[in-house]
């Protein structure tokens, strides 16, 4: 059978060949460690680091309400940290969106050469180490930093603003870091938006606001949601920005996980925290896919009714 379909066979084997390397790589280096972490999160932490190979659900208990009574009483501090991380990640996504949405429209209206230049500039920060760039923000934000000196010099304020080592500094830093992640998917959907649809809407009597609400926003929504998710997920687990710009005062889930692995040597608890973050992100993605899927439903229904 397959011998009589040499073209199809060849296409399939090429496809398999192309997929083999990434599949193997991800299986070994992504699924492996992840599975290991999942197992660790259900094991008892060893007294001096490492794990005891006995089932132990109290790492999750420590987060959700049934702590190991031998050592401590339940304290919802981890849930609070997690919720604060969610709030900061949401704020980061929101401000990234606020900055990138108009910018994406502006860039999409430029000529071809200016467009490519802008897209290059957007990715330019990746060429410099993240740590170096964040230390630059420390110089900008600290009490004797450029921003405070500038404002004092203008006579707008007398005493330096307390920006560094606050949640504000963390959000500023994360917005700065994640702007390219928001911009690119947003730009892709804005660029695809057919300008004649905006003209058609105006021609049919819609004001600019109506056109935005009824045509522009719905058609760029996939980019908005996509960009927000791509910013939200790494913001939620980020630990570099809060440790550099948040100091010891702002702890996010990412810092907590980092501490458990590197300082506290409580790998099971770190793994349990990591699994919790991942589970909530996955939940979010499922909701997103469901929301997107709902749009396609009417069309699918008509197709199936025509077929039947």
């Amino acid at each position: 059978m397959s011998a009589r379909k040499p073209i199809e066979l060849r296409q399939k084997s090429v496809l398999a060949g192309l997929l083999a390397a990434p599949t193997l790589f991800l299986a070994v280096f992504f699924a492996g460690p992840l599975g290991l972490m999942f197992i660790y999160s259900w094991l008892e932490p060893g007294l001096y680091g490492g794990v005891e190979w006995t089932f132990y659900d109290l790492s999750y208990g420590r987060i959700f309400g049934w702590a190991d009574t031998r050592y401590e009483k339940f304290d919802p501090v981890y849930l609070e940290i997690f919720l604060r991380s969610v709030v900061l990640a949401l704020q980061t996504s929101f401000f990234c969106l606020l900055i990138c949405y108009p910018a994406a429209f502006w860039v999409s209206r430029l000529g071809e050469r200016a467009k490519s230049l802008c897209l290059f500039l957007i990715t330019l920060p990746f060429f410099v180490s993240l740590v170096v760039r964040l230390f630059a923000w420390v110089l900008l934000l600290r009490p004797t930093g450029l921003i405070n000196q500038f404002l004092i010099g203008l006579g707008l304020i007398d005493t330096p603003l307390e920006i560094i080592f606050t949640e504000t500094a963390v959000v500023i830093g994360m917005v700065y870091v994640f702007i390219p992640f928001m911009f690119l998917p947003l730009y892709a959907s804005v660029e695809k938006l057919d300008a004649s649809l905006i003209e058609a809407s105006g021609d049919l009597g819609a004001t600019r606001l109506q056109t935005f609400r009824k045509v522009v926003l719905p058609l760029t929504l996939p980019g908005i949601i996509g960009g927000s998710i791509i910013v939200f997920i790494p913001s939620l687990g980020n630990f570099i920005v809060p440790s550099l710009l948040g100091g010891a005062k702002v702890v996010m889930t990412g810092n907590l996980i980092e501490q458990q692995f590197l300082s506290a040597r409580n790998w099971p608890f770190g793994a349990a925290l990591g699994m919790t973050v991942m589970a909530s992100v996955l939940l979010l993605l499922v909701v997103y896919v469901r929301l997107l899927g709902r749009d396609e439903m009417p069309a699918a229904r008509i197709r199936s009714s025509e077929g039947g």
Partner: peptide, 22 residues
Amino acid sequence: RPAHARPVNTVFQNYALFPHMN
């Protein structure tokens, strides 16, 4: 008058139908 306040309507060359509406 802006386009939306003019008493004319247009049939566009590429139709410009809104793809997200029935």
